[in-house]
Nucleic acid binder design. Structure first.
Lengths: 197, 197
DNA sequence: AATAAGCTAGCACGGATGTGCTAAAAAGGG
DNA sequence: CCCTTTTTAGCACATCCGTGCTAGCTTATT
């Protein structure tokens, strides 16, 4: 009977506003007021869709996870179909590159990822989702390595995953030093050393 | 004529209080009030030693940098003196291990490092010091690799530095998964692959 | 003992934050 | 057309923040 608004779509729009605020001014500035302003809504409207502030941030992190997962899954299929050799090498590089701030879109996503995962250390509301994201990434990396016949999969998984996390961190915090070219070169070098070593 | 208090020592004590608050509750909780409470001082006393809030955080980050630098420099000498072979390998591992959360002390330091460097992205007051820290670490890693006769020093420096950053990040955020043993194994594996590859 | 300076304590202000609550507005089904 | 229910808007309150000020305390020197 009333104005019908897909509540899930609305929540996603608000999450987008959260992302923009976080990118520009950091997670600690993602207050209800700032987010509502950024979304062009009144604070009361935002609160109608979210139980409280924690609920808002939690949903935003879930949204980020979903988006990332969707993007990665496409590449997983590509790696599977690219049977072997050079084709597979490129597919793996493309897959892992999705986790690095190589272009403006992925840069935004990495900035948001970094803000949320680090915040999760002291924000209980974010911990479980941050944990899920962390484990999901390890699972993907582990499967890629196992599929490539890399020995010592456990250590190598953590090594590659840590390298990706570190590259993303550096690329976000010192983008003029850790440029996309540098990140690509490092990733390629690492993958090459896994094949020969 | 008045009670004489070494002001620099006082500033360092307050910085310690900042560190404790940051470790426990995050950088965004390091307000003048919380820090003063933690230090057992009145807010007015803290403000007597620091021009403003930015000055406090800036000094704390400089203090962290100094402490880290002092610890690393000892190991640099050790690496230089350990001429070659197994002795050098262990010395290098010990040096780089200082940058990882391998024990409670270094864990504290890594937590604080992560909080400050990530905060520097959106806090202008911290940017220059965070930059200096970042570059200092690269310099150390670069020299270690060059001294070890590693080819492609530039790419390898960024690769190892990113790996260390990533390991520290994971060790801080998921300490039950990325344990000291895991970190040590990954670091050792990486260093080994540099020698043989 | 008097004094002058460093040091400590804390009040007051304007602004921001999360949340409880109320009331207006909007719009599709009767 | 009207009514019901979702959606929107916003006020009010307690709390916290950084900072400008102003006193009072403490103590080494004269």
């Amino acid at each position: 009977m009333p104005k019908v608004v897909d509540p899930e779509a609305r929540r996603r729009e608000v999450a987008e506003a959260v992302f923009r605020v976080v990118r520009r001014h950091g997670l600690e500035q993602a207050s209800l007021r700032n987010v509502a302003d950024e979304a062009g809504l009144a604070i009361g409207s935002v609160r109608h869709y979210f139980a409280d502030h924690d609920d808002l941030l939690r949903f935003a992190l879930e949204e980020l996870t979903d988006r990332l997962e969707r993007r990665i899954l496409v590449h997983v299929a590509a790696v599977r179909s690219a049977s072997t050799g050079e084709g597979r090498r490129q597919a793996v590089e493309d897959l892992l590159g999705e986790l690095l701030p190589l272009d403006p879109d992925r840069r935004d996503e990495s900035e948001i990822w970094l803000a949320f995962t680090t915040a999760a250390r002291t924000r209980p509301a974010l911990r479980s989702q941050a944990r899920r994201l962390h484990e999901g990434l390890r699972m993907i990396v582990g499967k890629v390595l196992a599929g490539g016949g890399v020995p010592d999969v456990e250590v190598e998984t953590e090594r590659l995953a840590a390298l990706l996390d570190g590259l993303a961190l550096d690329g976000v915090l010192q983008p003029d030093l850790t440029t996309p070219e540098v990140m690509r070169a490092v990733l390629r070098r690492h993958l090459a050393s896994l094949s020969t070593g």
